[in-house]
Write a protein that binds this DNA or RNA. Structure first.
Lengths: 218, 218
DNA sequence: TAGATTGTTAATCGATTAACAATC
DNA sequence: TAGATTGTTAATCGATTAACAATC
């Protein structure tokens, strides 16, 4: 391992590698080359080798990477080899979807508490969890050792919820609300903003919608 | 306007600009400088000016950008000045959340049809839409002029659904399933994979979890 | 006019890719 | 040994930022 600073682009690719490796593992594939991975992910094999080499020598020259071993290593790098508790605020449709995905976020990440700002939601049961009121957030985050907060409330309430999470002591926030959050520097925020993806998708549509052949006169 | 090729990074920032501009507009702000926008978004003002300048001269020297005018222009660029119909497959929790968000995706984008692969789901009502069976997908996409497909089914079914969407003639797909899709080259795919964001967030946690001051001996 | 801010060119920075020695 | 594939250095590419003339 080197004490080098790893760029965000590299870190963001690790979960993608993990996803493909888990796939291969389920299909009992023992070994994979950077070439194979590159084909599956439309990435340059050199980039994959370089990404992995930041963290150690995981491959074998002439052979490739052992799938199980590489999964284990990437899990370690992402700190998914230890349990990580997550709290969620916003028991609406999206929040409930994420709670039910819990099996999905299996990799030692678990939503262990759900909160809502609306008293009418409090007490409801979601996938075995009882929705708690916001004034229980601080003590629950401490008691359950919650490190990450997920925000699935409307944009207008998001900053307020983020402040509560930070005050309660979480180190990271995943924000689904379409708004930029301001927090103390040491708290890391990731955005899961699908509207961005959807709206930017629209940009690329008419390149095909306008049939360029129609304008060709022979 | 220039006939230049615009990079994906630029296009992805446009919806973010739009978001902030809509915010400003609601608060009756008339004019905004690239400096202001940069502060709000943690972006370099020069980058914002450059991004916008790819598409035209929208600002006024010494003044800044007219908020309403810039919103209009970005809407045009993203083709949100015309209605755009969207179909969704997967009426589970996440699918339902997106359908109910319809107000959100107001910008002339609308989910106009919902499908599910499971017969037991068919016929259910979601936000005024009746869930249709998959064998109605092709005719509905044609009849409703659906250009974009959203996939909210489990990973294992996602490629199959994508194939159906492509066969039916959509030009773009927004995939929420954590899997890479293979489609004809002319179909554009965007990924809304929040597991990637969540897992990569874990990587950054212990940088603060390990209190570096504790190791300092004076 | 003086101050502010754009649009754009040039400089910088960082990320991706090619190439190859090492080695299984 | 010959073929395959890694880890890594050097070359390339592209994106970000700085700087500034134009101008409101």
């Amino acid at each position: 391992m080197k004490p080098m600073k790893i760029s965000e682009a590299v870190v963001r690719r690790l979960p993608v590698y993990l996803q493909v490796l888990n796939d291969l593992n389920m299909r009992d594939v023992q070994t994979v080359s950077s070439q194979d991975l590159g084909n599956k992910l439309d990435l340059n094999p050199a980039q994959i080798r370089k990404d992995l080499a930041y963290f150690g020598d995981f491959g074998r020259k002439g052979i490739g990477y052992d799938v199980t071993y590489l999964i284990e290593k990437i899990r370690q790098i992402l700190k998914l080899d230890q349990p990580l508790n997550v709290g969620l605020v916003g028991a609406g449709n999206l929040g409930r979807a994420l709670c039910n995905y819990n099996t999905y976020l299996k990799d030692n990440m678990k939503i262990t508490a759900v909160f809502d700002v609306h008293p009418s939601m409090v007490g409801a049961s979601i996938n075995g969890l009882t929705v708690l009121p916001m004034d229980k957030l601080k003590e629950t985050v401490a008691a359950c050792n919650i490190r990450i907060g997920i925000i699935t409330v409307p944009a207008i309430e998001a900053q307020n919820v983020a402040d509560k999470f930070v005050e309660a002591g979480v180190d990271g926030i995943l924000n689904f609300a379409p708004t930029i959050l301001r927090v103390q520097e040491h708290v890391r925020i990731h955005y899961a903003n699908f509207t961005t993806e959807l709206l930017s998708l629209a940009y690329y549509l008419d390149e095909e919608g306008v049939d360029e052949n129609e304008t060709v006169v022979d």
